[in-house]
Design a protein around this nucleic acid. Sequence first.
DNA 1: ATTATCTTTTAGGTATACCAAAATTAATAA
DNA 2: TTATTAATTTTGGTATACCTAAAAGATAAT
Lengths: 218, 218
Amino acid sequence: MRAETIENYLKTIYNLSSDNRAVVTNQRLADRLNINPASVTEALRKLHELKYVVYEKSYGTRLTAIGSKMAIDIVRRHRIWETYLVKELGFGWDEVHEIAEELEHVKNDKLINKLAEILGNPSYDPHGDPIPDAKGKFQKNKFISLQEAKAKTSYKIMGVSDHSPVFLKYLEKNQLIIGADIFVKDVEEVDGSLLIHCNKKDVIITPKVAGNLIVKAL
Amino acid sequence: MRAETIENYLKTIYNLSSDNRAVVTNQRLADRLNINPASVTEALRKLHELKYVVYEKSYGTRLTAIGSKMAIDIVRRHRIWETYLVKELGFGWDEVHEIAEELEHVKNDKLINKLAEILGNPSYDPHGDPIPDAKGKFQKNKFISLQEAKAKTSYKIMGVSDHSPVFLKYLEKNQLIIGADIFVKDVEEVDGSLLIHCNKKDVIITPKVAGNLIVKAL
DNA sequence: ATTATCTTTTAGGTATACCAAAATTAATAA
DNA sequence: TTATTAATTTTGGTATACCTAAAAGATAAT
Ligand SMILES: [Mn+2]
Ligand SMILES: [Mn+2]
Ligand SMILES: [Mn+2]
Ligand SMILES: [Mn+2]
């Protein structure tokens, strides 16, 4: 298997299982990777053979210790590059994910560690995701999605789970950026939309947007 | 064809034809790319079909205007990255070629132009190769290889044509670095080896080494 | 418990990018 | 010019990473 293919599968399995710590289904992998389910089955069989995952037919997949180590390494490269592009090279947080998707595959420890050093070994990337250190260790925080928020409660935005330019530009337009404090005034029963107060303004956000905002209760 | 494959072919055709401005033979491509001649024939047919090269069967290949533009763009990315790695990230000139081989395939103009800007839009990379600007323009200098040097003449080292770590480490050991002035004391008839004076020391170098040193007569 | 639906796997294909061996063509030397 | 050698192309593979359509398996609904 090509290194890039392996890396994209492992990273995606990692990202899908770290949210809910469960085994990953073929369908979710197929959706996320934009690949046909039949091809996913094939790839998982090979990754199992290579001992990167434990793939149980018709049940699901999880990373082995080796696979997990590799995945965390890729995630580190991705997030260090995103941070470097924003902090050192003047890119916007909405521009970096796509470039990092390519840069993450350049495997050179000295390079990544140097970038991290220049950045002061940051703990979080521009989207609020934690950056593993060179040994793969990092903060596992238990934040919630704003969709699970209760009315009449204050929260702080800690991150975003959708890294697409269109979503990030929308957030910026509404000043819903990392670090912002928001107060949930009301949750609409009918459609799950939220009336929130943020930056001295009231904004209504859909459950879709709320679902991609990672917050912590204040 | 995969973008990376196309890019590696075009870059190599460019590098092989810029030296001697002639058409490139399949064999030289096969050797340089470490690919079977039969595969090169196949690839050239496709690159011709795609209008990146003019490939005349059993004769040779040259780049079209479009292919040349692409090749220069890849060369720019390669050389900017090599310079950035050395100047901004503290790598040795012997470490960067391999990393740049991968980074050159990340196609993002804003990224490369930003790196170039930080470097002050340099004209030469760490190996003395000229760096094309964003429009593809660059100095075409007519230096010679030290192998063509005459006895009792002074030269300045302007570049190297072998970027391998082992060769560059050898040069560094003997202080045969870019900018150094050398005086060719004698050229040995028997084996073409050169007795040169450099940095207050006499050194004997083989024609192989001399052939990879690019110099200008003083 | 049976049907309907959704998920996964199998089977059979395509396109890419390689390779080795043989056949052809070109270049060089006798 | 005719061998001999070298370069190139053709032919017939392989491996990878996808795909579609159909079969099989699992889940949920009646
Ligand atoms: Mn990202
Ligand atoms: Mn990727
Ligand atoms: Mn190089
Ligand atoms: Mn390359």
